[in-house]
Design a protein around this nucleic acid. Structure first.
Length: 627
DNA sequence: CAGCGCACTTAGGAGGTTCTCA
DNA sequence: TGAGAACCTCCTAAGTGCGCTG
């Protein structure tokens, strides 16, 4: 079953249950028996460590003992006298007793004690085009300076992409390209439309093709070379453990590809040099040397953060980081904490729901807006919706940043009362479109919030994420808007799995059920994907197969019928046997048909839905394991 | 309490690799 | 065995949320 889960969540299967991982009163996270044993994480300094194949289980006695100890800690906490400060202090002490596999936990805020790494891998230097690949301006051959040529190749490589037809993209690109030109080039090249990149484009296409056509040995060689690079730079040592680094390669230069309608699309992402790089490692480690003839921007020793390398990117001026792989302790632990917070929310979510329902009646506008927004976040799993700088990014919104133009109120629609129609672009400019019936009070409140406002005005003008999260913090320690998404995603999976699966289903049916449960979550979270380019065709192929199977089935049935009739007349062993084999054939074909139909359903339902994001980030893996 | 910087999580697309089935 | 589908990994953009400052 582990195969159905993304490998990147694998840290979970290896993490010892530090507090009781037992089902609560509703059977939430009911674990199989084996699950209660602590699982040992192989810690040899092994090249394969990041994808451990064997999971050793610790001996049961020891685990029982540990469990008892943890239980005692818990009980003590429970018996502890009330009083916030004391409670908090005790909680901190309790936290300090937790272990990440027989290890001391760091004091709060400290992320590591020792960190050593080899530094980043820089993008390969630019290789000038061969002489025979020409660039034409206004129909005439033109030899570009290396710098201008490099930037031109970025554009040429994207020529087939829709991006290069967009006005903003072209404008931004041309502006930044001109900055890289010599004054001579600048005076000649004044119009992008007169630039002919086709030879460059063809050259790169030929290269891609050649790469595809390479022999097995050559491909193997490249693969080995990559593996060597990973071996050398892809790992670091953090607190006695060798850990895999997620992105040890510095992003190569290129043209910025924003998502959606991004005002900066096409701008030049400049090459990152060692002089841009900040190295973070521990004082007592071997500091990675900068490339010969270069210097780092800075070397620091900050153990309150998890990153190894950072630099400032030139498009938005934001900081980029090199951090560890999801299989690392530091990421896995954080991930686990996230799901534990979601589990804590489960315990008080009813109270919170009652509270926000009460708040819909509040005399204070601010409180009402907060309550309605929270209702949306809870019911529809919307994102928080931080403010963003206007004109710097694509125009997308979340809950708190919804504008009047993003919703439509229908007192009645499709035979239902109090319908709200949402239509806005969310993260990554993915459209959120949904029609939902809401409670009358919510509907009336929305009417109130929209009164005397322009379409481009904020729906929740007295609210932002910081106000909302401060309120949530008061309701439960560690509660923020995003916790609702995690909680509702995981609980939906659990409920759907329970509802959709029957123990005696066959395997394809169970897979379909699991995918359907996963799909319910993906729909809730609005995780979409572009339908595969060959979707229609592949669907048609499948349908042809199904039709053929159906014909085959009809034939087989007919044959069975005639065999039966035959057997009735002849009454001999041979004809009886024929009937039996024909029967089996019908059965087999029926099964095959069923399998195909299940496949078709699964694929059709999955056309525009991406299951991976929820699997990776929202579904507590323990639910899947338990199922 | 606004505004900003920083750190970290969540996201879809591209493109390569592996699997499946006729 | 080969084509096409499915899957996986990498890449990097785009979110969330916290803490500091004035």
């Amino acid at each position: 079953f582990v195969l159905y889960l993304n490998k990147q969540s694998s840290a979970f299967f290896l993490s010892p249950p530090r507090i009781k991982d037992e089902p609560d009163e509703d059977g939430y996270y009911a674990s199989p028996k084996e699950d209660s044993k602590p699982l040992k994480r192989p810690r040899e300094e092994d090249d394969d460590e990041y994808k451990p194949k064997k999971i050793k289980t610790e001996d049961t006695k020891k685990s029982k003992k540990r469990k008892q100890e943890e239980e005692e800690v818990k009980c003590e906490t429970k018996r502890a006298p009330e009083g916030d400060n004391k409670k908090k202090k005790q909680k901190k002490e309790e936290e300090q007793k937790w272990k990440w596999w027989e290890e001391e936990r760091h004091p709060e805020g400290i992320k590591w004690k020792f960190l050593e790494h080899k530094g980043p891998v820089f993008a390969p230097p630019y290789e000038p085009l061969p002489e025979n690949v020409k660039f034409y301006y206004d129909g005439k051959v033109m030899k570009l300076s290396p710098k201008a040529e490099e930037v031109a190749t970025f554009f040429a490589k994207m020529l087939d992409h829709e991006y290069t037809t967009k006005d903003i993209f072209r404008k931004n690109f041309f502006k930044d390209w001109r900055k890289e030109m010599t004054s001579e080039e600048k005076s000649t090249i004044t119009n992008l439309s007169k630039c002919d990149f086709t030879q460059m484009s063809q050259y790169f296409k030929a290269q891609t093709e050649a790469r595809k056509q390479m022999s097995k040995e050559e491909k193997q060689k490249i693969k080995e070379e990559n593996e060597r690079l990973v071996k050398e730079y892809g790992f670091c040592v953090m607190d006695n453990h060798k850990e895999r680094i997620a992105n040890f390669k510095i992003e190569p230069p290129g043209l910025f590809r924003g998502r959606g309608n991004h005002p900066k699309m096409g701008m030049l992402k400049r090459r990152i040099m060692p002089e841009d790089i900040i190295i973070n490692c521990s004082k007592d480690s071997k500091v990675p040397p900068p490339p010969p003839g270069h210097k780092w921007k800075e070397v620091r020793h900050d153990n309150k953060v998890t990153w190894l390398v950072s630099w400032t990117e030139n498009i938005q001026g934001s900081i980029k980081y090199i951090m560890l792989n999801p299989s690392s302790r530091i990421k896995g632990e954080k991930d686990w904490q996230k799901y534990e917070t979601a589990r804590r929310l489960k315990k008080c979510v009813d109270k919170i729901r009652n509270q926000y329902r009460e708040d819909w009646k509040s005399k204070e506008m601010k409180v009402r807006q907060r309550a309605v927004a929270l209702y949306f976040i809870d019911k529809l799993a919307l994102r928080a919706g931080n403010e963003k700088e206007e004109g710097e990014t694509a125009d997308t919104v979340g809950c708190c940043s919804l504008r009047v133009e993003h919703i439509n109120l229908h007192p009645e629609l499709d035979g239902q009362e109090y319908m709200v129609e949402f239509d806005f672009l969310g993260k990554d400019s993915i459209r959120y479109y949904n029609k939902v019936p809401v409670e009358k009070r919510v509907f009336k409140n929305l009417q109130l919030f929209m009164e005397n406002k322009q379409p481009e005005d904020d729906l929740f003008d007295r609210l932002n994420t910081s106000i909302l999260n401060k309120h949530l913090q008061d309701l439960m320690e560690g509660l923020t808007a995003k916790v609702f998404r995690t909680y509702n995603a995981s609980i939906t999976l659990q409920q759907q799995l329970k509802e959709l699966t029957t123990p005696d289903d066959n395997i394809p049916a169970k897979i379909l059920s699991y995918n359907r449960a996963n799909r319910a979550v993906a729909i809730l979270c609005n995780h979409q994907r572009a339908p595969p380019k060959t979707f229609e065709k592949s669907m048609m192929n499948l349908q042809t197969k199904i039709d053929a199977k159906k014909d085959q089935l009809a034939d087989a049935r007919r044959e069975l019928k005639s065999a039966k009739a035959d057997a009735k007349v002849r009454r001999d062993e041979k004809s009886k046997k024929t009937v039996e084999s024909k029967k089996k054939a019908v059965q087999r074909i029926e099964e095959q048909l069923m399998k195909l139909e299940v496949q078709a359903t699964d694929r059709e339902e999955n056309k525009q839905i991406a299951l991976s994001t929820s699997k990776l980030n929202y579904l507590d893996p323990r639910i899947s394991v338990a199922w």
